[in-house]
């Protein structure tokens, strides 16, 4: 048995997480609406979301690797615990709120949500736009944990409760 291979596999499969919330909005600034399920379209984006129709705040800076965005529920809890900032899953303006998924470690890797296959392209960065909308000073507390951008390789439906796992 090659121990290196075994160890690597153990690391690769050391986590599974779940989808806790799903949110979309059809245009910039509009409140995010909680959805039970959303449809991811390969190479495009989320049906009904602003970034699939070039209607998002950053759509004038298009990025092929930003077809869907993810955020950790654990970060919301850390903001409340360490900074007394109450931020809900509808406030961070990313589409998929996960639990138990090490989003920052996935950059450059592929992972699945149910049957949907995503490729993590880069970390999301905090932005003043969210501060403007929420009226909360969250730019600095969100540094290094502002979520993940991903490209949709295989589309399909994603629902709350779906399992997230490494590919």
């Amino acid at each position: 048995m090659d121990h290196a291979v075994t160890d690597q596999k153990a690391v690769q499969t050391s986590w599974t997480g779940r989808v806790e919330f799903l949110h979309i909005a059809p245009r910039s600034f509009l409140p995010m609406r909680s959805m039970p399920c959303i449809e991811l379209v390969a190479g495009a984006g989320i049906t009904g979301d602003r970034y699939s129709t070039a209607s998002g705040f950053y759509s004038d800076r298009p990025e092929e690797g930003r077809q869907v965005t993810l955020f950790e529920a654990e970060t919301l809890e850390a903001l409340a615990r360490d900074h007394q900032i109450q931020l809900g899953p509808e406030d961070h303006r990313r589409n998929i709120t996960t639990r138990g998924v090490p989003l920052n470690h996935l950059v450059g890797r592929c992972f699945r949500i149910g049957q949907v296959l995503l490729e993590a392209t880069r970390l999301s960065t905090p932005c003043r736009h969210i501060e403007q909308i929420t009226g909360k000073e969250i730019f600095t507390p969100l540094l290094h944990r502002s979520g993940l951008h991903a490209r949709i390789l295989t589309g399909g439906e994603v629902c709350v409760g779906d399992v997230v796992r490494p590919e």
């Binding site: 059809p26 245009r27 509009l30 409140p31 909308i133």
Partner: peptide, 10 residues
């Protein structure tokens, strides 16, 4: 109102 009758910023 929003064109799709979506909620507006509060």
């Amino acid at each position: 109102a929003d064109m799709d009758d979506w909620e507006l910023p509060p």
